[in-house]
Amino acid sequence: MTIHSLYIYDRHCICIYYQDWHRTKRPKPAVEGGILPAVSQAVSPLPLSIDAKAGTSSTYSSPRNTLSSSTGVVIATNDSAAPVPNTPLLQTPLPPAPTSSTGLAFDEEAKLVYGVVLSLRNMIKKLSGRDEQFVNYRTSSYKLHVFETLTGYKFVMLSDPKADSLRFVLRQIYIGPFLEYVVRNPLVRMDSREYGIDNEYFRTSIDRLVRGLSIFS
């Protein structure tokens, strides 16, 4: 058993965070403008820099890191400033390049995942006749787990179909790294509709939490 991927959606139905682990088929990078910046470097379209337009290669990194890599203290950044390179402390190695692709762009995949969650949640509420919660569903190839906060944020995780409910893991992510590095960070603009969760400490904390689970292998 294992964990495949994690999606976080805001109250506006926009995917603001993505991370994957044991995916044999990763989606294609999103089309330009299809997802917010900083959702995930693994699936984000790389913008052409001035050097790239001139014919030379350039490494892309987000200029909106909101924590000092050496002290962990919240710092102010200028959008127009030069990009801040990731330090070894904050770098989370990307998974090995997959041998195949789903053939679907990530922005389309994110919409499909959210559409499934919304449709099943509405169906359950209508059929149950009471305030029933949708927590997970299973197919022959994966199991989808959902945790929704009172403020409308949805945490969605895909795992092995034989896995037990991972709702408690999603709740741990919410009350732990999400509150610590996103909600309580004064420089993270919640509901901005302009940026994803651009915080490498948040990404590293989730990676450490997930890899420490007994289901992760």
Rank of each mutant, 00 (worst) to 15 (best):
Y9I: 06
R11H: 07
G212R: 02
F106M: 13
M123T: 11
D164N: 02
D107A: 09
D107C: 03
S5C: 08
Y174D: 11
Y174R: 02
Y142E: 14
L89D: 05
G152H: 09
Q41C: 12
I175E: 14
R211I: 05
W21F: 08
P63A: 09
P27H: 08
N122R: 12
P85L: 10
L46K: 07
F134E: 06
P88D: 05
H4G: 08
L144V: 15
R23K: 13
N136T: 07
A52H: 00
L158P: 00
V31E: 15
L179G: 00
A30P: 02
M1C: 11
T102H: 06
S62A: 08
T56H: 13
A163K: 05
A81Y: 13
L150H: 11
L127V: 09
L127N: 09
D191I: 00
A163Y: 13
G115L: 05
K25Y: 03
S69T: 04
Y201C: 06
A163W: 10
P93T: 02
Y114H: 15
L118A: 12
R184P: 00
L187S: 10
Y9W: 06
H22Q: 06
R211C: 09
Y174M: 06
S119R: 12
S68M: 06
F168L: 05
R189C: 04
N86T: 12
E132W: 03
E108A: 06
S58P: 02
K53C: 08
T71G: 13
Y18H: 04
L89M: 09
S100N: 06
V74N: 09
N136D: 14
S217H: 13
V210L: 00
L118H: 08
V156A: 01
Y60S: 10
S119F: 08
T139S: 15
E200S: 14
K154I: 11
R11G: 03
T56D: 07
K25G: 02
V188F: 15
V117G: 06
S49M: 00
V169Q: 01
R203D: 11
P85E: 13
V146Y: 05
G212H: 03
F155I: 00
E132T: 07
G129Q: 04
I16M: 09
C13L: 09
I215C: 02
Y142K: 15
L120C: 04
L67N: 07
V39R: 00
Q19G: 03
A42I: 03
T56V: 12
Y17A: 02
R26C: 04
Y195M: 10
K125E: 14
P83V: 08
S140P: 05
L90H: 14
P96N: 03
V74W: 01
I173K: 07
T149G: 14
G212W: 06
S44I: 05
T2A: 14
Q172S: 13
L46F: 04
A42H: 02
Y181F: 14
I16Q: 05
M123C: 08
H4I: 04
Y114P: 00
E108W: 07
P83W: 09
V74P: 05
F106P: 12
V182C: 08
G103I: 04
G176Y: 04
G129F: 11
V146H: 07
V146L: 15
V156G: 03
I14T: 12
A30L: 02
S68H: 13
V182Y: 01
I14C: 01
G176L: 04
S49P: 04
L213Y: 02
P85M: 13
G152E: 10
L48R: 08
E109V: 11
T2E: 11
I175G: 03
V135Q: 13
S165Q: 05
